[in-house]
Amino acid sequence: MLNEWLYQFASWLDTFESSTNLHESLYMYGWVESTHVLTLTVFLGMLLVIDLRLLGVGFKNIPASTLVDRLDKPMMLGFIVMIISGVLLFYAIPVRSTQSIFFRVKVILLIAAGINAMIIRRMTRQRPLTWDYDPSPPKKVRVGAGLSLTFWLCVIAAGRMMAYDWWDCHKEMPHFMYWAAGCVNELAAFEQ
């Protein structure tokens, strides 16, 4: 059901001329993808600094609240550019991305990372922070920061693997994989 709906949505996006143009452009697609990868350094770079501090392994002589407050704006700025370029990349290749198992894993990981980020935000927002100057924050904060870094590393991995065709729909795969990747046409062929 959901698979069919997603496929129809992707096929509909695919009918737009601008989607094809972006995909087949000589340079534009490359620029959008480079922007996507380069803003990683802004968004994940700032996130890394905050998480290393919350893990208690780096920037220990700077109060945690200073980093959390001051790096928030550049981090979110990088995040917005990353989302916009990411949406454009999806728009350029909608059907294949929708039917990519790695893209699906990436979206799930992004949601998990987002929920985790909100929990961390709640734990680091009260002022004054009782552990602001402690080299090593409380355990639950450290666990959250560790999870955050793990999620984002997996997001990078999933994004990188989208480029490979190991589990594309046209490949011979187990029934479960066709379902998980949303290969609607291949599933229909299975039924017959």
Partner: peptide
């Protein structure tokens, strides 16, 4: 993946230092 992640670490850390010296970030 690890190559990209360490690129993020390298350029992120350099970016932080450079933005600090440009007086954009962490002025206090």
């Amino acid at each position: 993946t690890f190559h990209i992640a360490s690129m993020v670490m390298l350029v992120g850390m350099i970016l932080l230092g450079d933005l600090r010296m440009l007086n954009v970030l962490l002025r206090e």
